[in-house]
């Protein structure tokens, strides 16, 4: 199981992107790699879904993008959390925690 990338739980991609950006602004590929690293290779996101999510988050005003040079002196769009995005991340993390705990309780009950 661990060596094969699995699909994300529906609706969690936005939250995970926000989380990766909580530390520092990052470009698209950086975010994809970070997601993979942090999940120990469980989540592999394809470019399409990732960029759709960027568009969505930008339009919702949770992240904003800026073109900058990379360390390999290549131009890339760096995404950063906005204030609103930070708030959203906090509330979503809390909500997620609540839900996971609840699901765990149900699963352990039997």
């Amino acid at each position: 199981m661990a060596d094969k990338p699995s699909d994300l739980v529906q609706g969690t991609l936005d939250m995970l992107i926000l989380k990766t950006l909580a530390l520092e602004p990052m470009h698209g590929y950086g975010i994809a790699v970070r997601l993979e690293q942090m999940s120990h290779g469980v989540f592999r996101v394809n470019a399409g879904s990732l960029f759709v999510a960027f568009q969505r988050l930008q339009r919702a005003g949770l992240i904003k993008g800026e073109w900058k040079a990379t360390e390999n002196s290549r131009r890339a769009k760096y995404y950063a959390l906005t204030e609103q995005g930070r708030k959203q991340l906090n509330s979503e993390t809390r909500e997620w925690g609540r839900q996971v705990a609840a699901i765990a309780r149900i699963l352990e009950a039997s």
């Binding site: 470009h27 698209g28 590929y29 994809a32 470019a47 960029f51 390999n72 890339a76 769009k77």
Partner: peptide
């Protein structure tokens, strides 16, 4: 912009 961004993404992945 979208072209450039996506291209960059794929290029970086390929370089890796």
């Amino acid at each position: 912009e979208l072209d450039e961004e996506l291209n960059g993404f794929l290029e970086m992945a390929a370089e890796e």
